[in-house]
């Protein structure tokens, strides 16, 4: 288009950029990806309501009985209870230990700070399979193997550093002058913590807590090696059902999977509201 054309034409309401080839490719690829993801998830939902589904576009008949069977026969209620129990315990412990550590790492320079930082980074960077088996062996060695305690402990390994690393930027965004002001106006350590720091850090703690919960929910490898039949979480029970060559019926595992999905989606939906620390901070200050 030349300028002369435009001058003659009516005023454009908004200037739109012409989509480029790369943009088209990107959006098509993204569309395919989203379609596969949604297809995979939809198929699980459909299958969980199917009488049988050996193949083809749609199952032969629909039923809701698999959910009842999943609840009663596969120990899913137990797994659900275990998941909730482990999730809450991990969140509480990770926050209790992680928030003070994050605070200190953000605020203070001390000998060995970089070593501690590395210690917090490694469990997040290294995939759980690099240490899951050793950790399980240790748990069995000290007599905790298969217990709920062990499930909680192993899940702390990737989640506690997660809390620390989320809290560090959060604390850094709070000006140290706020703390100095509180001190000058007579707040002791306890008051400083309860009246100033906790309210300011609450969004960060919330974000960290939810991410830890989601992470614990989906943590397969760590829980898998250390849990027993009566202490396994949902995702481990699901793996057991799928990989069982004896044939747990497909729709039954699908019903389990849908239950797991519902629990996870709830976590994700809530966490997306808080997921970026800066966002949460901005919301508070508005």
């Amino acid at each position: 288009m030349t300028t002369a054309d435009i001058a003659a034409g009516p005023p454009p309401r908004t200037r739109r950029e012409r989509p480029t080839l790369t943009a088209v490719i990107t959006w098509v690829a993204a569309g395919c990806f989203v379609a596969v993801i949604l297809g995979v998830l939809a198929s699980v939902v459909v299958q969980s309501f199917a009488t049988t589904w050996r193949g083809g576009w749609w199952p032969a008949g629909l039923t809701a009985t698999w959910y009842g069977r999943a609840w009663s026969s596969t120990g899913m209620s137990q797994a659900l209870a275990n998941t909730a129990q482990a999730g809450v315990a991990v969140v509480v412990i990770a926050l209790l230990a992680g928030v003070p550590a994050g605070y200190l790492l953000a605020r203070r320079a001390f000998p060995g700070r970089s070593v501690v930082m590395l210690l917090m980074l490694l469990p997040i960077i290294l995939p759980p399979m690099t240490y899951a088996v050793q950790l399980a062996a240790l748990m069995y060695r000290v007599g905790l193997g298969g217990s709920m305690t062990a499930v909680v402990l192993v899940n702390l390994v990737p989640t506690l550093p997660l809390v620390v690393l989320i809290m560090v930027p959060f604390v850094e965004q709070i000006s140290p002058e706020v703390e100095n002001a509180a001190r000058v106006f007579g707040a002791n350590n306890l008051r400083l913590f309860s009246r100033v720091l906790v309210p300011l850090l609450l969004p960060g703690m919330l974000a960290a807590g939810i991410l830890v919960l989601v992470r614990t929910l989906g943590a397969f490898e760590l829980t898998f090696f250390v849990s027993a039949a009566d202490t396994q979480t949902l995702v481990v029970a699901l793996f057991g059902a799928i990989s069982d060559p004896g044939g747990v019926p497909g729709p039954l595992t699908a019903a389990m999977a849908v239950t797991y999905m519902l629990v996870a989606v709830l976590g994700l939906a809530v966490s997306l509201r808080f997921v970026t620390p800066s966002q949460a901070i901005r919301q508070r200050h508005r």
């Binding site: 300028t3 435009i6 005023p11 454009p12 908004t14 200037r15």
Partner: peptide
Amino acid sequence: QPLTTGSIWRDGKRIDSLP
């Protein structure tokens, strides 16, 4: 930034659609 309405002119040539 794009305009919502109106126009920009330089020496009698309209330039608001130029990137």
